[in-house]
Amino acid sequence: MQSYSRYFPSDPAASGWGWRILDTGRQQIAPQAKYPDAEHPLSYLFDSDGRRSLDEFQIVFIEAGSGIFESEKIPKMQVSAGSVLLIFPGEWHRYHPTPNTGWREAWVGFRGADATRVMHQFFQSKRAVLQTQHPQEITGLFDRLLHWAHQEIAGRDQIAASHIPLILAFLKADQAELTQPHNSDAAIVQRAKAAMLQQLDKRSDLTALAQQLGCSYSRFRFAFKRETGHAPREFENHIKLNRSRDLLQHHHLSVSETADALGFNSVYYFSRAFKRAFGSSPTEWLKTHQQQSK
């Protein structure tokens, strides 16, 4: 994997957006390799004690491997794949991969009025190490954020920054799930949603899923309807159709490839469901969207 990082110059047009992206990247650190990469700006490097303090928020997602994290408010602890490190401005911290494993990390640094409000209202620096239950979704959001960070278009910074609150929303959902009784209706629905999101290429066996979650199908369906307003199959189709627009637009899959990637029985059924949801066929929607983007 090729490492990538970008540090954004000040953009007056983005100052009032509420979320301002400052830097982002992804890097693979091989076992025994030096860390961090000396190519980062000096203000981002760790000092002789292995510490640093930033004037921005950061989200650091450990996608693979393991390592160590320590901060002003958190004693030294081990982190591993799926761990998310939240960095708060003005607080010293240090982290690094374990020499015998290395790691792959993705990160984004940010500021802004809305960012500050959300970070202080919903997260705490004394609980700055989280274990996400949605690693595939977080990875996908970083994929898209980094895609837009590469682009040289008007509004690039705002488009890239829009992925930050989505990442934080998943982390907040993880926290809420941990505080719910494991067998409550809300917890069952949260776990069902996570299972659906992790296998969008398949049509879920809802009866089997209910059994895995430790409840009857009738309770599962009732809980799902009450918590989401949708029946389980309706909800699954909804998230698949939303994902299909991303596959068509950003991954450049054909209509048939998109239908197959999302586990639809046929292109006809996929196209009919797409048109019912969005008012036009996949081909028509993509053509209109491409024209509007020119």
Rank of each mutant, 00 (worst) to 15 (best):
L85D: 01
R276S: 08
T139N: 11
H120Y: 10
W92F: 15
S15K: 15
R276A: 15
L248H: 00
A208N: 05
G279P: 08
R94E: 03
A81F: 03
V189M: 08
R272A: 10
R111H: 11
F235G: 06
K34V: 09
G18I: 06
A173Q: 12
D11G: 09
Q212I: 00
Q198C: 10
A161I: 00
G102A: 05
A192E: 05
T228Q: 04
Q175M: 13
L145C: 03
Q121T: 12
S83R: 07
P89W: 08
P135L: 03
A161Y: 01
E70H: 11
T116Q: 13
Y95M: 07
R203M: 08
F46V: 04
Q136P: 02
S10P: 08
L54V: 11
F220M: 02
F224A: 07
E72L: 12
Q249T: 14
D174Q: 02
V267R: 15
I21R: 01
E177F: 08
W107P: 01
Y95K: 02
S256L: 07
S5T: 13
A176N: 12
D174L: 06
H250Q: 13
Q124V: 03
G140R: 09
F274H: 14
G214D: 01
R221A: 15
P31N: 04
V255F: 02
A176C: 12
G65I: 00
T101R: 06
F264Q: 02
I188M: 09
F170K: 08
F235N: 09
D23R: 15
H93V: 03
F235I: 06
F274S: 02
E63Q: 13
I239H: 06
F46K: 04
A33C: 03
E257K: 08
I153G: 01
L178M: 11
N237Y: 12
Q212P: 00
S10L: 13
R221N: 11
E227S: 04
L200R: 10
Y217G: 02
N242L: 13
E152K: 11
P36A: 01
V255G: 00
S5E: 12
E236P: 05
G229L: 05
V118P: 00
D185T: 10
V267K: 11
A161V: 00
A277K: 15
D47H: 08
L141C: 04
F222R: 11
